[in-house]
């Protein structure tokens, strides 16, 4: 077990400031406090080499969880082990085991060229010379970083910087990688490059990856397992297929066009109970839940009617996620 979080909880205490000057003066002496339960009783286990998509709406507690796993924040309650270590108490050793990318904050040195930043990291993590060279060459090549490797970080575009951030987080061969919204604000090409790179790192190096994102394409392409957090609590933990079954039942559909006008679409009894029919002239959409297989439905339809343009649709991950977030 690479990551093991049990009953993980984080409360923030926020000082509420009053409005205006008067409120400010008041809060100097007596401040009202409010407790925010950012993460509540989260259990998360990840095996070596797993890639988990950690999703949830803004403010759900995703970043707070990652900050506790990476040793930045101390949990209010519960226990965390990353590679067998308590990330906060053994912060320095834990830092050697993990890599982290926060899409919203840079880990690089603003005034230094990318190449020098890597050199600093080499010294900081004591990376053996041969590993360092191999990693830099491979990352530079795969992420096409050559053109901007000698520019100061502050001069990079977001896409260039993000590629540098991800490469930087992996130079020391971490066992675990935390990616907190790594594709935020990136154009399609860079997104694809980042996804391919993450896939490759996970597959070839067996790096355990926890990924948060609002881009569902990331999730669809990368994460077999999804953990959904909302209001600080885990609402779902399982495969993409299970997620779809749980939240988007009834979102499967078969659409077709009738070749002849018919008054009513009739389905065999076993199927009819699980289907709803939408119709607009000859264009028909039959929606059904997952207890009905699309092929059975099509066979039943073809036996009774003459159809063209048959189109089968599964639940869209957008629908699923919207459903989950609504809870």
């Amino acid at each position: 077990m690479v990551i093991q979080a049990t009953g993980l909880t984080k409360d923030y205490v926020i000082n509420l400031k009053g409005k205006g000057l008067k409120g400010m003066a008041k809060s100097l002496f007596k401040s009202e406090k409010k407790t925010v339960h950012a993460v509540q009783d989260v259990n998360l286990q990840m095996d070596e080499g797993e890639l988990v998509g950690y999703i949830g709406p803004n403010g759900a507690g995703k970043s707070t969880t990652i900050k506790m796993l990476s040793g930045i924040l101390a949990p209010t309650a519960g226990s965390v082990r990353v590679c067998g270590l308590d990330p906060q108490k053994r912060r320095i050793q834990n830092a050697m085991n993990i890599g982290a990318v926060f899409g919203q904050k840079t880990q690089l040195w603003w005034d230094l060229p990318v190449r020098e930043t890597f050199e600093l990291l080499r010294r900081m993590y004591n990376i053996p010379a041969d590993r360092y060279k191999k990693n830099v060459d491979e990352f530079m090549d795969f992420l096409d970083m050559g053109p901007f490797a000698d520019q100061a970080v502050r001069q990079l575009s977001l896409g260039q910087r993000m590629r540098a951030e991800i490469a930087a987080s992996l130079l020391h061969d971490p066992k675990v990688l935390f990616l907190d919204e790594p594709t935020i604000g990136l154009d399609v090409n860079v997104k694809v490059a980042v996804r391919e790179f993450v896939k490759k790192i996970n597959k070839e190096r067996g790096v355990t990856i926890l990924l948060t994102t609002h881009d569902l394409q990331d999730i669809e392409e990368l994460a077999k397992r999804i953990v959904v957090i909302n209001h600080g609590q885990v609402g779902f933990d399982g495969s993409q297929a299970e997620l779809a079954r749980k939240y988007a039942d009834g979102k499967h559909s078969v659409s077709f066009t009738l070749q002849q006008e018919v008054s009513d679409i009739l389905l065999p009894e076993g199927l009819a109970a699980h289907c709803t029919i939408q119709r607009e002239g000859r264009n028909v959409k039959v929606m059904h839940d997952s207890s009905v297989s699309s092929s059975d439905l099509i066979v039943a339809l073809v036996q009774r009617y003459r159809l063209t343009d048959i189109d089968i649709e599964g639940p869209q991950i957008e629908d699923v996620v919207m459903e989950v977030y609504r809870e």
Partner: peptide
Amino acid sequence: DGSFDRLLLRPMG
């Protein structure tokens, strides 16, 4: 501004 995060991510005091 929360940039203390990155100091905590490094394997150094």
